[in-house]
């Protein structure tokens, strides 16, 4: 595509570019710059802050109290990401290998929940997880079926069904995060499998590798860029999803997002909250850089080792 130098039509260039530039400058860069300064400020009085270039707000994040919270938060986000990957990988594989005719409807069905409000999808899970919820009803049905089966063959019963106390626990938060972010995991996985040449699988199987070996030595390494993308796209937002912990979690279910939210809307320690949100942002940038690196490496490997004859 031919582009023209900006000097060739300065009026059009300015008319097209200035509005967006000004908008981002005033309503994006300025607010972010402001809380960047805030993150190096000291609290003074109830609502005041002085820019003292202190590093204390960042250091405070590494105090044992907060390290404990962050550790748990990372664990919940990791568990959710792992669950997403375990469910998402086979789903993406099934869609990528589905007949072309039903591929688009399947993809549409996977992306559609993404458009439904994230808060509403979280709320929908309350009815699933609670003591008298659908998950427990289903388990109870299987339990009773097993119970009567065992009685019938004279092995005694399983006893009474004890419902799982799932809602308001960290497990509920992790499952909730996994449920809500699942489409984010499946789409990049699917994209990497779409590009994957199926003849490699046939070659591997023909040459005597078993199914497991083919999976771990051929399919997984070649779809790694998709796995990395999916993991990053789920993991970082999961850390910030404070409303999921609020709705499904208990008193000790806190994600980093909950701590940030509390600094701004409850505890009123803006400098500390600003430092935490910048830490989360740095994590995001690190994830982006990491993804780029992996993508570049995969491309090199693709061009070198598997060049088509």
């Amino acid at each position: 595509m031919q582009t023209e130098p900006w000097q060739s039509n300065k009026v059009v260039f300015a008319a097209l570019g200035l509005p967006a530039l000004l908008w981002l400058g005033v309503f994006f860069v300025l607010p972010l710059g402001f809380i960047f300064g805030l993150s190096f400020s000291d609290k003074s009085g109830i609502i005041g802050h002085d820019l003292t270039w202190t590093g204390g707000n960042y250091l405070r994040a590494f105090e044992p109290l907060y390290l404990g919270i962050f550790g748990k938060s990372l664990l919940v986000a990791l568990a959710a990401t792992a669950a997403c990957l375990l469910v998402g990988y086979p789903v993406a594989l099934a869609v990528a290998f589905a007949p072309p005719k039903i591929k688009m409807p399947l993809l549409l069905a996977i992306t559609l929940p993404f458009w439904i409000n994230i808060l509403i999808r979280t709320y929908a899970l309350i009815a699933v997880f609670r003591t008298r919820g659908f998950l427990n009803f289903t388990l109870e049905w299987f339990w009773n079926a097993g119970d009567s089966l065992l009685r019938a063959v004279g092995l005694g019963g399983l006893g009474d069904f004890a419902p799982l106390e799932l809602l308001y626990t960290n497990t509920a938060v992790a499952l909730g995060v996994a449920y809500v972010f699942l489409p984010f995991m499946i789409l990049p996985l699917y994209a990497s499998m779409e590009r994957f040449d199926r003849s490699y699988l046939e070659a591997s199987l023909d040459l005597g590798a078993g199914h497991w070996r083919t999976f771990f030595k051929v399919l997984l390494p070649l779809t790694m860029p998709g796995v990395i993308s999916g993991v990053m796209i789920v993991f970082v937002p999961a850390l910030g999803a404070f409303f999921i912990a609020d709705m499904l979690g208990g008193a000790d279910s806190q994600l980093i997002g909950n701590v940030i939210e509390r600094q701004f809307l409850g505890a009123n320690n803006w400098p500390f909250g600003a430092a935490l949100s910048f830490l989360l942002m740095y994590l995001t940038f690190a994830a982006i850089v990491l993804r780029r690196l992996f993508a570049a490496r995969a491309e090199r490997a693709d061009g070198g080792g598997y060049a088509p004859a």
């Binding site: 530039l21 981002l24 607010p31 402001f34 809380i35 910030g240 940030i260 949100s277």
Partner: peptide, 27 residues
């Protein structure tokens, strides 16, 4: 750089943009 900056509001966590705008509007 302009291209990259345009995609930043999509990329950074929502909560970060949320609190930045909270402070900004409050001021």
């Amino acid at each position: 750089a302009a291209d990259g900056m345009m995609s930043l509001p999509i990329v950074i966590p929502e909560i970060c943009l949320g609190v930045a705008l909270l402070v900004f509007f409050n001021q």
